[in-house]
Write a protein that binds this DNA or RNA. Structure first.
Length: 271
DNA sequence: CTTTACGCCTGACGGC
DNA sequence: TGCCGTCAGGCGTAAA
């Protein structure tokens, strides 16, 4: 489900509910998620939320200076705001219950998501320490991509989806950004010019920020914390458009599996 | 070091 | 109606 814009949308939904509130109780109904939920997470109980932020696709709930909770939505996870007395639905695996009785409830059919505790500073956590820059930060530039790509022979699509290079570019937006930049997804990352990487960095920034403005992309089941879908799907240029005409040149769009993932592109517009 | 393949899961869908 | 194969938005890990 969620790529960076969907995680950002989720963050913006839960932040106003959580900020300044105390987490009274953690209710774990099913701890067998991506990793077994550790007992450490119960440190959160009785602590006040000092802030919420996002690093890559991890949601970080800061609980004072010591540390906090780390939530990952995996491929099918979502958070919604509800009342603690609302009956849990299928796949509702855990709740963050607030003093007010409101709760933030995690639902995840495939259970690729997770819940963990982090100790300050979060950046030192093993899941975060090796990550590349945020795509919407100043450190993410065409020059940066060009430098990191020298000598790399793998497909550029895999390169931009590698979290050690840049975080948050998932399968949908990788296809979209490569189309926008006119770069063929199979081109070797090390054989793309600095000028073209400038266009690619710009395309990545552009597609991600536009998707955030639309509340994310809902293809099958993504809902934000209010239960509403995202509206970026109607702006997708190539993703899941195999066999349909390219909006730019009219030729038929192709699909190919690259690195185990479906990739969509135009053979005319992307070289 | 880079690159590739594999699972972890449930659910939806198409073909028979 | 059921069964089976395929596919799905992530990502850490192992192996080459």
């Amino acid at each position: 489900m969620p790529e960076l814009p969907e995680v950002e949308t989720t963050l913006r939904g839960i932040e106003p509910v959580l900020a300044g509130c105390t987490i009274e109780q953690l209710v774990i109904r099913n701890s067998s998620l991506r990793w077994p939920v550790s007992e450490e997470v119960f440190q959160a109980e009785g602590r006040r939320v000092s802030g919420c932020r996002r690093r890559a696709k991890y949601l970080l709930i800061e609980l004072g200076g010591a540390g906090g909770l780390m939530i990952h939505l995996g491929m099918s996870g979502s958070l919604r705001i509800c009342d603690m007395n609302d009956a849990p639905r299928k796949h509702d695996h855990y709740d963050l219950v607030l003093e007010s009785g409101k709760c933030v409830r995690f639902n995840d059919p495939r259970r690729f998501g997770s819940l963990a505790w982090w100790n300050h500073p979060a950046e030192d956590h093993p899941l975060l320490s090796h990550l590349g820059p945020e795509p919407l930060s100043a450190g993410f530039t065409g020059t940066y991509l060009w430098t990191r790509s020298r000598g790399r022979r793998g497909a550029v699509k895999n390169f931009i989806m590698d979290g050690k290079i840049v975080v948050g570019v998932g399968n949908i937006y990788a296809s979209e950004a490569l189309f926008m930049a006119g770069i063929h997804p199979l081109r070797a990352a090390g054989r793309i010019s600095a000028v073209r990487y400038e266009a690619l960095a710009q395309a990545i920034r552009d597609v991600l920020s536009r998707a955030i403005r639309r509340g994310g992309t809902t293809l099958r089941d993504f809902l934000n914390s209010d239960g509403n879908p995202g509206y970026f799907a109607q702006e997708l240029l190539v993703y899941e458009r195999e066999g349909q005409p390219c909006f730019q040149c009219g030729s038929i769009l192709k699909r190919k599996v690259i690195g185990q993932r479906s990739s969509y592109y135009c053979t005319q517009c992307q070289r």
